[in-house]
């Protein structure tokens, strides 16, 4: 088994980062990896920024990583991609959902939303941009955007051989399974 890999998922409370990381960990465990996943509950759920960290390998000790340690960062929102960019190893990879969610200070006009956040990320690191919300909408449910991003993440991590159908079936309701399978594939095949 390879050395320990580190993945960070970031976004805004309510975007489904936790479900995406749950499906990821389910697939990894089934394939025999040691896995640790860390998330924070509480105040951050009230519209604040949220992150989840997933670590996997033969043996994982710490449930969290420090700055500059993530192999892959998956940002569910553009400004959050820039906020957590220094979690990524120099030479790492960033997947960004092409979506802007304003924060209260920007809604209030107290400060500006950085509309060039994506350019600033691309300038620094290898970046894949995915219109996950649009893809999910086309498949029939915008809420599956998180599974579209999961598909892209699995590809970036080189984990395509694992049994993701089984992991999806274990984590989503049967009536949404087919749609989520399509969402996963769409993300996996996205350029």
């Amino acid at each position: 088994m390879p050395e320990v890999k580190n993945v960070v998922l970031c976004g805004v409370g309510g975007q489904g980062t936790i479900l995406a990381s749950k499906i990821l960990t389910t697939g990894l465990i089934d394939a025999g990896y040691d896995v640790k996943m860390s998330e924070i509950h509480g105040m951050s759920q009230r519209g604040g920024s949220v992150t989840t960290q997933v670590r996997y390998g033969e043996k994982v000790y710490s449930p969290i990583i420090g700055k500059g340690a993530a192999d892959v960062l998956v940002a569910f929102e553009k400004m959050e991609a820039l906020r957590y960019l220094d979690d990524v190893k120099p030479g790492g990879f960033v997947i960004v959902n092409d979506q802007e969610i304003p924060s209260l200070p920007t809604l209030q006009g107290a400060c500006a939303y950085p509309h060039d956040a994506l350019d600033r990320v691309k300038e620094k690191v290898n970046t894949q941009v995915i219109e996950a919300a649009g893809i999910a909408q086309e498949l029939g449910n915008i809420k599956a955007a998180n599974v579209v991003l999961l598909g892209a993440m699995v590809k970036a991590l080189g984990l395509g051989d694992l049994d993701w159908d089984k992991a999806l079936a274990a984590c989503v309701k049967p009536q949404f399974l087919e749609m989520n399978r399509k969402a996963f594939q769409a993300g996996f095949q996205a350029e």
Binding site: R46, G48, G68, M79, D86, P90, L104, P105, T106
Partner: peptide, 20 residues
């Protein structure tokens, strides 16, 4: 010290928790 990607963080708007 870990080797980090350097960039300008001052352009980030805060995202504090808020009343719903």
């Amino acid at each position: 010290e870990p080797e980090l990607i350097e960039y300008d963080k001052s352009v980030l708007a805060p995202r504090p928790p808020t009343f719903c």
